[in-house]
């Protein structure tokens, strides 16, 4: 597997972005957006997780096989949610 060297600048930028998004998460917690609350919180969390996976975990620079495994993880999460929710919404 090729060892892609990421400039330090990128790491710092990602770090600052993650801190900013954390502050945003805390900030929006003080406002009530009704049913949107959960979507906003999960949306920010998803963006943060994506940035971590792409840069800190080097996914962006990895071959497609690694993408396949990362994608499998997301697919399996999807399976877990869908079949569990299939129970909740039909009780």
């Amino acid at each position: 597997m090729s060892q892609h060297v990421i400039p330090q600048k990128v790491y710092y930028l990602v770090f600052v972005t993650l801190i900013l998004l954390t502050l945003v998460t805390v900030d929006v917690a003080f406002y009530n957006f009704g049913f949107l609350n959960i979507y906003i919180a999960m949306g920010i969390a998803t963006v943060k997780a994506t940035i971590v996976a792409l840069y800190f975990m080097h996914l962006r620079y990895n071959p497609r096989l690694t993408w396949l495994f990362a994608g499998a993880g997301i697919l399996w999460l999807f399976i877990m949610f869908v079949l569990t929710i299939a129970d909740y919404i039909t009780r």
């Binding site: 079949l83 299939a86 039909t90 009780r91």
Partner: peptide
């Protein structure tokens, strides 16, 4: 093997529909 876990829960209070699917 990942799609069948609900068969452990047929009488646990899981919905009948979910039970049928699992």
């Amino acid at each position: 093997g990942f799609l069948v876990w609900g068969h452990h829960m047929f009488i646990s209070g899981q919905s009948v529909y979910a039970g049928f699917v699992f």
